[in-house]
Design a protein around this nucleic acid. Structure first.
Lengths: 157, 157
DNA sequence: GCTTGACCTCAACCTCGCTTTAACTTGAAC
DNA sequence: GTTCAAGTTAAAGCGAGGTTGAGGTCAAGC
């Protein structure tokens, strides 16, 4: 169990579900590491799979790659995270998700209160002006939940 | 009430909250229209303000500009939408928001059920593999709720 | 010793929703 | 008639998260 414990890029791609190009990109961004074979090919340790699962999960929670890198950096290097490590992180994520859900609910409730009114006032309509979007600049279309969810609802049909 | 009812780009920008560049961009994308003054400057009808409110609202609900354009195209041309027009659209939006909220809740619940387990299995962990993200390709970090909400939570602090 | 396929690097490209810039014209005030 | 803000255009840029392509190397099979 030595030469057996290292994985090629295609193996990691297959087992993680990430494209090889994404793996290389993550490496370039400092999210994962790889050693090299004598012929300069990437060799991954098994641990990279857990790390990639973490990356996917964090991405699903809405973290940027930069934030993910920071979280990974604060994780114990080398060893599997303990229950405590994990709890610290997931508490953080939970708060984030709660905020996101609350924001969408406020929007939906604003929509409900508006149904049929046809107001859509630039000044007064809660859908045009959700309370939490005071500082919104740029990004109107798809400012809110995007690709991941939109694609999901496409598929649901 | 003729020369008084047309608005310059700066007036529309001020009253709508959109940057002039955004207005020009929307025009280029077919979301709004403008006639021209003798000197080739844009002149907007008042109705554009309601249209812009619609654009903002739709953006907040998560529609892309392309989708917004399609919805606008299906709206009665020229006249103010009736209660029925509006209800048809908002029902659609409501469903969208419900889906988005449900997806985030599934993710949060998966997180709750995972707290402390440290599993993060690529195959089995619900946070790494939310049920609705089967086909997700690309967009890992910030795949979910983006700028608008992230900025909102920054500001909350 | 040749082919095939997996891998390498680096740079360019993609989408989305705009903003910025450069170079120029118009409109209004004085 | 001069000045200055406000307008015009086309094209480039941004940021996020990658993918794609060109051009080359490496390892294995026959």
């Amino acid at each position: 169990m030595d030469s057996h414990d290292v994985l090629s890029v295609s193996e990691v791609a297959r087992r993680s579900g990430f494209a090889a190009s994404a793996l290389r990109y993550y490496e370039s961004q400092g999210l994962i590491v790889a050693s090299r074979s004598p012929g300069n090919q990437r060799r991954y340790e098994r641990g990279v799979l857990r790390r990639l699962a973490f990356i996917r999960a964090a991405g699903n929670v809405g973290l940027t790659l930069e934030e993910i890198r920071d979280e990974l950096a604060r994780l114990p290097a080398g060893r599997t995270p303990t229950r405590a490590d994990w709890q610290r992180i997931t508490r953080h994520w939970r708060g984030r998700l709660d905020e996101q859900i609350a924001a969408l609910e406020r929007l939906r409730d604003g929509l409900d209160s508006c149904i049929g009114c046809g107001c859509l006032s630039l000044q007064r309509c809660g859908i045009s002006n959700p309370g939490d979007a005071e500082g919104r600049r740029g990004r109107v279309g798809a400012g809110f939940l995007p690709a991941a969810l939109r694609r999901a609802s496409d598929q649901a049909g």
